[in-house]
């Protein structure tokens, strides 16, 4: 029983980190209709930057998020302006291929700078655990999960309580209308892309502490994040959080009770099943599509 509770708690903590990264992905999709295949690559990039800050400058990896996230934000903004903006109005198929290309380039860049060997961030508390009753909760995972929830909360406040958040949501619902009331769609899109990428960056900085990583790990990440977003419903932030938590728990449970090697595969089976029964995902909605034949 304790074992089950422990796995559940670990799954929830992991889900928090997934939610952060998947939230960025679903935000970008919701506002721009862009499926950012490079999302996992930005996540791994953040992990490498965190690694350098920790190993080079001795900064605590969880504190380093304060540096990593803004850096990745800028990288995301520049990426948008250079590559995504020129094909902003192209069909979704084009942006999928573009971001796929970007992912490969990023992988190559990381491989060139940091090498293709497995890299791990091991802070002093890496091997310590909190002991609550009969539960052993690794400190890194607890801190990581809490930081993820904190960043996610900030993101949520920005989206729902600020003018920027309203502008973003307006752009998502009706780009032409948003433009008419004075919102600069291009600027909002750049900001959203950068915020989405930064969320992935924050998630990457945290997972870098939890697991070792290589540049090529971004494929696994994008597959996982896309699965989460589909599960929750494309473009729905709440859906992404729900999907992430379910995914995190499912992965942890599979690793504990089935076999660690299948842990990466089983959650996809869940996603397939969800799509069979409910193609729009758990919290997704079918959009009204008669008004603007985009």
């Amino acid at each position: 029983m304790e074992q089950l509770v422990q796995n559940l708690v670990l799954g929830l903590l992991l889900g928090g980190v997934y939610a952060l990264a998947a939230g960025g992905l679903t935000l970008i999709f919701g506002v721009m209709r862009v499926i950012n295949i490079a999302h996992g690559a930005f996540l791994i990039l953040a992990a490498f930057i965190t690694y350098s800050l920790w190993s080079g400058l001795g900064i605590d990896p969880l504190l380093a998020i304060v540096i990593t996230t803004p850096v990745i934000f800028v990288v995301g903004w520049v990426t948008y302006k250079l590559f995504v903006a020129p094909i902003r109005t192209a069909p979704m198929a084009s942006t999928v291929l573009l971001t796929f290309g970007l992912a490969l380039v990023l992988e190559a860049v990381m491989g060139t700078i940091w090498g293709n060997n497995s890299t791990a961030i091991r802070p002093a508390y890496g091997n310590e655990s909190f002991i609550v009753g009969d539960l052993f909760l690794p400190k890194a995972q607890v801190y990581g999960g809490l930081v993820a929830v904190l960043v996610l909360a900030v993101l949520w406040v920005v989206l729902t309580k600020t003018w920027l958040g309203r502008a973003i949501r307006a752009s998502a619902v009706n780009p032409a209308g948003a433009e008419l009331v004075g919102i600069k769609i291009g600027s909002v899109a750049a900001l959203v892309f950068a915020i989405g990428i930064a969320a992935a960056g924050a998630g990457g900085a945290i997972t870098g502490i939890l697991y070792p990583f290589v540049p090529g790990a971004h494929y696994q990440w994008i597959a996982r994040l896309l699965a989460i977003v589909v599960l929750g419903g494309m473009g729905s932030l709440n859906g992404a959080v729900l999907g992430a938590v379910l995914f995190g728990v499912a992965e942890t449970m599979t690793a504990a009770y089935v076999s660690p090697s299948w842990a990466t595969a089983v959650p996809y089976a869940i996603v397939f099943a969800v799509l069979l029964i409910r193609p729009q995902g758990l919290l997704g909605s079918r959009l009204r599509e008669d008004a603007v034949p985009a």
Binding site: I87, L98, G101, V105, A108
Partner: peptide, 19 residues
């Protein structure tokens, strides 16, 4: 990495300049 650069870079360029 060269192969990744080549394929990734080409993909980006083709999508933008030779759609």
């Amino acid at each position: 990495n060269t192969r990744l650069f080549l394929f990734g870079g080409l993909l980006v360029l083709v999508v933008i300049f030779l759609p």
